[in-house]
Simulated scan of single mutants.
Amino acid sequence: MHVGAHVSVAGGVDNAVQRQLDVGGNCGQIFTTSPQVWQEPEIEDDEVDRFVDGSVESSVGPWVIHSAYLVNLATPKADLQEKSRSSMQAELDAADRLGIDFVNVHLGAHTGAGVEGGLDNAAEIIDSLDIPDDVTLLIESDAGSGTKLGGEFEHLAGVIDRTNADIEVCLDTAHAFAAGYDLSTSDAVEQSLGEFDDVVGFDKLSYVHLNDSKHDCGTNKDEHAHIGEGEIGEAGMRAFINHDAIRDVPLVLETPTENGKSYEWNIDRVQELRD
Results as ranks from 00 to 15, higher is better:
F196H: 01
L119S: 03
T173M: 01
S206F: 04
E272F: 08
A225T: 05
Q81Y: 12
E140D: 05
H209V: 07
Y263N: 15
A122L: 09
L70H: 03
S206V: 06
H209T: 09
G99P: 11
Y207M: 13
D172F: 02
T75F: 10
G28W: 00
G144C: 13
G12C: 08
Y207G: 02
D127I: 12
P250M: 13
E82G: 10
H66T: 00
H110K: 10
H155G: 04
R50A: 14
F153K: 12
I125M: 09
S141T: 14
I267V: 08
I232A: 05
A109N: 04
L171G: 04
Q20R: 06
L98E: 01
L210A: 07
I227D: 00
W38G: 05
T32I: 01
L273F: 01
M88N: 00
P62I: 04
N211D: 07
I65S: 00
R247S: 09
A10Y: 14
G4K: 01
D172A: 03
V252Q: 02
R50E: 12
D197W: 07
D49Y: 12
S67V: 00
S59H: 14
D248P: 05
H6W: 04
S128T: 13
H106Y: 07
D248I: 11
N26R: 03
E223H: 14
D93E: 13
A174Y: 08
F202H: 06
V103S: 01
D216Y: 08
E47Q: 15
V23A: 08
N220L: 12
V249C: 06
S145G: 12
D161M: 12
I160N: 09
N72Q: 11
A178W: 08
K204A: 13
R85N: 05
T75I: 10
R247N: 08
I139Q: 00
L21S: 04
I139S: 02
R97N: 07
D134V: 02
S58Q: 15
V23T: 11
N220E: 12
D197H: 09
A245G: 12
I227S: 00
L149A: 03
Y207Q: 13
H209L: 11
G228Q: 04
E40K: 15
A165H: 15
G144S: 10
P41K: 10
V115W: 08
V71F: 00
V252H: 02
G233M: 03
G230S: 01
G12W: 10
V56P: 12
S184D: 14
A245M: 10
L70G: 02
D96N: 07
G99L: 11
T32R: 01
D222A: 12
I100M: 03
C217E: 03
G260F: 09
H155K: 04
F153Q: 09
L107K: 03
E234T: 13
A165C: 13
K214A: 11
N220D: 14
E272R: 06
L210C: 05
E42W: 13
G158F: 05
V199T: 13
G236S: 05
D46N: 15
H224P: 02
D142I: 02
L119I: 08
G228M: 01
I125S: 07
L210E: 03
V52F: 11
L193Y: 04
T163Q: 07
P256M: 15
G230C: 01
E140L: 07
S262D: 15
E152G: 13
